[in-house]
Design a protein around this nucleic acid. Structure first.
Lengths: 340, 340
DNA sequence: GTTCGGCTTCACAACGTTGTAAAGTCGCAG
DNA sequence: CTGCGACTTTACAACGTTGTGAAGCCGAAC
């Protein structure tokens, strides 16, 4: 039914191994033979069976990207970056959504699907330090994205969370803001993104000699618009005064901005707002949103590079690596005071 | 190195075929034997080699979703819906980005990757009617999403573009708006989404006895925020008066809203705006954006169902099917006049 | 007590590819 | 003209799974 190497070999008048050699760029082939094979491939429309190749060679050319949810703009853009980086290495990407759910993450990691991929890019969310041992028996090369929750034998690529949040906070301080809200905290969390960013926020305040006011720290469970909106509502209702907001991601910032504007507060005049992630839409909101660009392309590129390295040298006992991408403060209207 | 059926068979004291039978739920197995095999699988941590299974059975359990760009919220949400629908059928999804580029779309369709998937969900953008023959020799089951550009042997699942645009326009008309802008037209296009939506817009105006004014039709190349912003700028500069905007997708609408607000126009008081697609963020903008919900989940579900049907009955010559999902008008603040 | 049919298990041969190792060809140095 | 090495091609055996078909077992029907 389907066209195989045997067909090509027959048409070209060579053995199947020669066809295989041509396809795999084996150097010692007569130019004329190579051409005959290529012609046969063309005229028959032959395409290699990747299952067979995968079976024989142990490589499928597919990597898996595990993220919580594609509807979250940050992860959609991350997926985009990863796919572009993977494309340059001739890899396809299977995206799996964990929904930020512990059981789902575990099921994905241990499921048979992981058997079919050469490597895993795993954006950890729901698993914690205590679960590190669960990854021990996973033999597929893996690179963790986002916060290092495990200290396993895997590479780890992420952004400078603490420094980024610190820079964001310093940016607001430089505008003269002193009552700065942190939006997106997770009560009790220290080692995840929320914890690290909160640390950066506190560091910046400390350096400026401003005490951290618990009333200015807004919890947001899921980092979506709705969470930002809800937290901001609570804050406004509480009556606590503030003149700046550091949101731990852009979605939270946008949700909060919406509530601020509804309440008649001007951005940035009354409240300056800065987000995190530099997702595309921050360029088009009103006002446009200042944010921290976390170096997503760089993260994706390095992560794929690390993975490819481990995939192509399965023997080489490469020690776990850590890579921290650079970030930049992107100033837009939400923190730019226009002289009247 | 890796654990195979042979290992399981040895531990369980049965033949590999029996192990295979257990895994594939073959009914005639003694309960005690089945249990012994399951125990062996468990204790060894055996997971089937999907490449081998794919080679032997011709099925990989993976489908491919070809979309232009994941950074576009509509497609990210579509991908999410497709992945959820696929998960219920135990299928993994490889996402390929075509970048709305003809050559890339062709390369993807003909590339070796397509050899490895059981089916293709193809969101056509760059290929046109004239390219229909290019799909003739693609044997993999395929379902087209979005506008039917080909009249090939494939199924086709889409929304009611014309009716949706018509309903959106009628919605603005019902608010008493008479000078309604259409944003997102593609000059000369008739059969794509842009053409169909423009037709719906024109139909609604005709029914209301309003002539179509060319000056109110805004071209937008790529349907992104930037395009909507740019087109709206041109429109404002032209000085043409208008009191409503039907944008052909939400991104365009949001870009346009941003420019309208910058220009000091109130939404919806001065200009009512309605979009298309009901992407998540329309719920959190200021004002929230009225839009057409295109039934994305329904589209994804039906598309995957069609694909699965064709995958599981490769012989059955199922005639090409057409499915039009239902849509709803979602009224939000951008078209809701609040009594003063 | 023989036959039949349902249950249970298994040996064997694929699926399409690539790694191994070896056989052949050829030109050139010895 | 022999031997050597570089080039060129090939046969064969995997890789791990499932489809085919057949064998063995057992109780029920004749």
């Amino acid at each position: 039914m389907s066209i195989t190497m045997h067909d090509v070999a027959r048409v070209a008048g060579v053995s199947i191994k020669t066809v295989s050699n041509v396809i795999n760029d084996y150097p010692y082939i007569r130019a004329e033979t190579r051409q005959r094979v290529l012609d046969a491939i063309d005229s028959l429309g032959y395409r290699p069976n990747l299952s067979a190749r995968g079976l024989r060679s142990g490589r499928t050319g597919v990597i898996s990207l595990i993220i919580p949810d594609l509807r979250n703009a940050y992860f959609a853009e991350l997926a985009d970056s990863v796919m572009r980086a993977a494309a340059t290495k001739n890899l396809s990407v299977i995206i799996e959504q964990s929904g930020d759910d512990r059981e789902t993450e575990l099921a994905l990691l241990r499921g048979p699907r992981m058997q079919m991929v050469d490597g895993i890019l795993y954006s950890v969310l729901a698993l914690g330090e205590d679960d590190a041992h669960l990854l021990d028996d996973i033999r597929t090369p893996m690179v963790l994205l986002g916060e290092r929750i495990f200290h396993g034998p895997t590479d780890h690529v992420t952004m400078r969370n603490t420094e980024g949040a610190r820079a964001a906070t310093e940016h607001l301080l430089s505008l003269g803001r002193r009552r700065i809200v942190a939006l997106g905290a997770h009560r009790g969390e220290v080692i995840g993104s929320a914890g690290l960013r909160l640390t950066g926020y506190a560091e910046a305040l400390a350096e400026a000699g401003i005490p951290v006011d618990d009333a200015l720290i807004g919890e947001v469970g899921g980092w979506f618009r709705s969470g930002g909106a809800q937290a901001m509502k609570l804050l406004l209702d509480s009556g606590v005064p503030f003149d700046g907001v550091v949101a731990f991601n852009d979605s939270i910032a946008l949700g909060a901005m919406r509530i601020l504007q509804e309440a008649g507060l001007r951005i940035p005049d009354d409240v300056a707002v800065i987000g995190f992630d530099d997702i595309d839409e921050t360029r088009y909101t009103l006002p446009t949103l200042s944010t921290i660009n976390p170096g997503r392309d760089e993260i994706a590129r390095v992560a794929v590079d690390y993975l490819v390295e481990r995939i192509s040298n399965p023997e080489a006992e490469i020690p776990p690596r850590e890579y921290l991408a650079g970030f930049t403060v992107v100033q837009r209207e939400s923190t730019t005071i226009v002289a009247p």
